[in-house]
Structure formats: C-alpha cells, structure tokens
Design a protein around this nucleic acid. Structure first.
Length: 186
DNA sequence: CGTTGGATTGGCT
DNA sequence: GCCAATCCAACGC
C-alpha cells in the first residue's frame, strides 16, 4: 500500500498493482549515464523517493532500491485507490475511480506529489510511505517489457497484477508472461 | 546557448 | 487508435 498524508491530515492510500524496475547499467534508466541534478535522488540511499517531471505535465514517483552511490529505482505505475478517494478525485479533477491511479502520472497527481517530495525518506517520513497491505499472490504477478522506453526492451522488468482493472493501459501492447520462479539473475 | 525529445495523458476520430 | 500538449533536462556545438 502506498500511503500519503496531506498537510490537512487527510490520509490517502492505494494498493500498488504495477511497477517497473530501473537498474544500474540499464540503458533505459535515468541513472545510466551519470548523476545529474535531476536524477540525484536515484543515487541516494534506498527507501527514499525519486520524483521527476516528464512530458511537460507529469510527475513520476519512484522508490530508490539500492545503496547510496548506485543509481536504481522502481517506478510506481499504478495503484488501486483505497482511502481518500474523494480527495484523489479532487486532485485529479475527475471522478471515475478507474482514472485516479491507473498510470504513473495519474497516481502522483492523485496523491498531490511533485518535485517538493523528491528525495524524501519513505521509511521515516510522514508525508509519503509504504505499508503492508493485502498480499499479492506470486501467481497473480505478470511481467512484460517496460512501457514507453526505447531501449532495454529485452528485460521483462514491468511487474503487474494480472487482470487488475487498475493496471495502466500501457502502450504499445507489450508481451506479457508469468513471474519467473526465481528473481532474474544479476 | 539552442535544439531535441521524453519511464504520459486525455481528447478526438 | 492516433496525436498534440507542455516543460525542461540533457546534450551537442
């Protein structure tokens, strides 16, 4: 569960149903070339938030996953809204439940997360954090190539709950498959 | 310092 | 399904 506490105390949350991994040495990763002002949070300690702006409109939320000095992150691509649905709708400017968190730009907007949250501590922080929710059965997880990238398509590093209505549309229709029995060797 | 294009979305066909 | 919108980081000169 991804949780957000607004300044007025309102609690927002959603079940994470779609993610993508961006790894060291990964040509699709913002951290591939070098550390810059934009991607600096990716090179910070694990458990912090990396937020970046793209396409002129959208903020993307990522969880930093490796130790300081190594650029890595997991992009949060979709949530199934659970708490604070009314506030999410207000932040998004639309009502339909399925439009609140079914894409990386959508969920950041629904949770009112932007550049001001880049680099914050998700473990000890009180603005954004992750909690245990109802478990996702391993059998329910499907994988595919990542969406919207032009390189690194050989890696199936998009992970989503198969058939979940809150998974992003994704475009172009990527090949899908089951979660490998073991983590990808590295 | 100018140009390019992106880890997307929403509206229109 | 197609494509424009919209901003700014990255990169090339």
């Amino acid at each position: 569960m991804l949780v957000r506490r607004l300044p007025d105390g309102t609690r927002l949350s959603g079940r994470i149903v779609e993610t993508e991994a961006y790894e060291p040495g990964d040509p699709a990763s913002h951290g591939f070339r070098r550390m810059t002002a934009r991607n600096a949070s990716m090179f910070g300690p694990a458990g912090h938030l990396y937020v970046y702006f793209t396409y002129g409109n959208h903020w993307m939320m990522n969880v930093v996953t490796r130790r300081a000095g190594i650029g890595s992150a997991v992009l949060l691509r979709a949530i199934a809204p659970l708490e604070g649905i009314e506030a999410m709708g207000a932040a998004r400017g639309r009502e339909r439940l399925h439009d609140l968190g079914s894409g990386p730009g959508k969920l950041a907007q629904a949770l009112s997360v932007d550049r001001s949250h880049d680099g914050i501590d998700l473990v000890r922080g009180r603005e954004v954090w992750i909690e245990a929710g109802s478990p996702v059965a391993p059998d329910a997880v499907a994988t595919s190539a990542r969406i919207g990238v032009r390189v690194g398509l050989e890696e199936r590093w998009r992970f989503f709950v198969a058939g979940d209505p809150f998974v992003s549309r994704g475009r172009p229709g990527p090949p899908t498959g089951p979660l490998p029995l073991r983590p990808t060797r590295r």
